[in-house]
Structures are given as C-alpha cells and as structure tokens.
C-alpha cells in the first residue's frame, strides 16, 4: 500500500485511481461476455456439424476419456488455486499470492501439454482438421479453448513478474482480479466442452 500513498497528488487522486481500476474490471467482464458469444458460435457450429463424419472416424472411436478426465480435474483445480491467489491478495500476502499463481500456471501448462498430446494422438489415428466436418469443428472448438488457456499462461507470467517488482497496488490488484475472472471463465467453458464434446461424443 505504501507506493500508493507517496504519489505527489496525495489521496484525492488516488481515490480516482481506484475507481479507474474498477472501471477496467467492468470492461474486462464485458469482454469475457463477448468471449462467451465467441464460444457460443463455435458450440453452435459444433452442434450442427457433430454428426457429419463423412465416412471418417467418429469421436466415440478415438476419444480416450482417461486423459480428458485428468485434464478436467487439472483445470478445475487450477481454477480453485487462482481463487486462492485472489484470497491471498485480499489479505495482502504477496508471496503466498505469487506461489498460488505459480501453482495455477503449472496446472494450466499441464492442461495445455495434455491437449497437445491428445491432438497429436488423434492426428496419428487419422483425424485431422481436413478429415470431416466433425473433426474440423472439434479441433477448432477445443483448439480455441486451448489457445485461450495458453494466452492466459503468457499473461500470468507477465503478472507474476509485475507482482514481484511492484507488490500489491491498485493496478496489480485489478490485473489479478481480471486474470482470475478469465481463468474461471475458461474453466466454465471447459465444463461445457467436456460435456458436449466428450461425454456426448462417447455415448
């Protein structure tokens, strides 16, 4: 908090600053809603094309649930740990917060690695983007989610460095709030992916 107060203009402006940061949380929330629409459009495409295998392999034949279940719990746990990071932030404990973020990042990385693994496996089995409408929709939907997670990791690293350098300020606080919101959102998207793509796919 110290850095917050030694600003030349003192308290009044700092309050404005705080409000300004709140403004950015609202904007980010709206962005997340637009991202919902983006995933909604991809889900709609998947739903319309999900039975069009064009004689190629089906999801039921190729999906390997154990890996997917592992990914699901990894991402769920990382969503929880990112929440713990926010809790630590509210208590003002920078170190604890960075460690929880690090745990979240490692879990996120594991998720991405598992996904890459799955994709290479599928391609080995002869299911690529160009195989059929089903696989095009599958790779695009799941891949877009994976890309979001990867971007989140990149962002998380940037934030951990900033936290180390600057501690908890209104600005870093806002950034971590947004990041954790984004991370929870990705977990929610994954739940629907897991249900619609994988569970309904193997039925």
């Amino acid at each position: 908090m110290a850095t917050q107060h030694d600003h030349a203009h003192g308290h009044d402006h700092e309050h404005g600053h705080e409000e300004h940061e709140q403004l950015k949380v609202l904007g980010f929330w709206i962005f997340v809603v637009t991202d919902c629409i983006l995933f909604g459009s991809l889900f709609a495409t998947f739903a319309v094309l999900m039975h069009n295998f064009a004689g190629g392999p089906t999801g039921k034949e190729l999906f390997e649930l154990p890996g997917i279940i592992a990914s699901t719990f990894i991402l769920l746990t990382s969503s929880f740990t990112s929440g713990l990071a926010v809790l630590a932030m509210n208590k003002g404990k920078v170190k604890e917060m960075i460690s929880w973020l690090a745990v979240t990042a490692v879990l996120g990385l594991a998720f991405v690695v598992l996904e890459i693994n799955e994709f290479t496996h599928l391609m080995h089995e002869g299911a690529t983007m160009a195989t059929s409408a089903f696989w095009s929709a599958f790779f695009t939907l799941v891949g877009t989610h994976g890309l979001h997670v990867s971007v989140g990791l990149f962002w998380m690293v940037a934030l951990m460095i900033q936290l180390k350098r600057r501690g908890i300020t209104p600005v870093t606080r806002r950034k971590v709030t947004n990041l954790s919101l984004y991370w929870h959102f990705l977990d929610v998207v994954w739940i629907f992916l897991f249900t619609v793509v994988y569970l309904m796919g193997v039925m």
């Binding site: 094309l49 983007m129 195989t131 409408a133 089903f134």
Partner: peptide, 19 residues
Amino acid sequence: GAHFFTMGGGGNPMMYLNL
C-alpha cells in the same frame, strides 16, 4: 482444408449463411 462450409466432407454451406 477444413470442412465447415464445403460441399464435401460433411460441411454445410448453409451454416455459413446462418452464422
């Protein structure tokens, strides 16, 4: 080479209009 809106491969050009 994806097959979202192609004529073959199970794609559906009408889905593009819809979207």
